[in-house]
Simulated assay, not measured.
Amino acid sequence: MAQDDSYRRGRHVVSALHVHLVFVTKYRHGVLDTAMLDRCRQIMSEVCDDFGATLAEFNGEDDHVHLLVHYPPKISVSALVNSIKGVSARRLRTEFTERVNQHSMRGHFWSPSYFAGSVDGAPLSLVHQYIERQRHPA
């Protein structure tokens, strides 16, 4: 029997957990540009790796980002989200100080809310296409 690479295999579990995440900047300020989105992708990918998860897809616009994350069953989505948002906000604020300080964000980068949707019901290819087709800021 052929082995399907879309499944995560552990010692006692076989899983295929994907979550579509959307993070919005505080007050929906259009602060993200191409350089910030590229750095954001790197940071978020590193955080996912630390959790044993995989950032399968990433894209965004000037005021929000979309992520498709393949994650193991041992971690909770809320713990992953809190870490991704916290680490990315801290690093983006220090690396892009001028750009972030142009907007009055009152010490916050991301809005405290987020969207998390299970993508088990939708074909992953459709979610990939949706995220890829986001307008990318200039």
Rank of each mutant, 00 (worst) to 15 (best):
M1W: 04
A2Q: 12
Q3F: 14
D4F: 13
D4E: 09
D5E: 14
S6R: 15
S6H: 15
R11D: 06
H12L: 11
V14M: 02
V14D: 01
S15G: 01
S15E: 06
A16V: 08
A16K: 14
L17Q: 10
H18E: 00
V19F: 07
L21E: 04
L21W: 10
V22E: 06
V24G: 11
T25A: 05
T25G: 01
K26P: 07
R28I: 14
H29N: 09
V31T: 03
L32F: 06
L32R: 04
T34C: 02
M36S: 01
M36L: 05
R39S: 00
R41Y: 12
Q42I: 11
I43D: 08
I43N: 06
I43K: 08
S45H: 11
S45C: 07
V47D: 02
C48H: 11
C48I: 13
D50L: 09
G52P: 07
G52N: 07
A53G: 00
T54Q: 14
T54M: 05
L55D: 01
A56S: 13
A56P: 02
F58K: 02
N59C: 02
D62V: 11
H64K: 14
H64E: 14
V65M: 10
V65N: 05
L67M: 15
L67A: 07
H70M: 05
H70K: 10
S78Y: 04
V81A: 08
V81M: 06
S83D: 03
I84H: 02
G86N: 04
V87Q: 11
V87D: 03
S88E: 02
S88C: 02
A89N: 01
R90T: 14
R91W: 09
R91S: 14
E95W: 10
F96K: 13
E98N: 06
R99N: 12
V100T: 02
Q102K: 15
H103C: 06
R106M: 09
G107C: 07
F109G: 01
P112D: 12
S113L: 08
Y114R: 00
Y114E: 01
Y114S: 01
F115L: 11
G117R: 07
S118M: 03
S118A: 05
G121S: 02
L124R: 08
S125I: 15
L126G: 00
Q129H: 14
Q129N: 12
R133K: 12
R135K: 15
H136M: 10
P137L: 00
P137I: 00
P137C: 00
P137E: 06
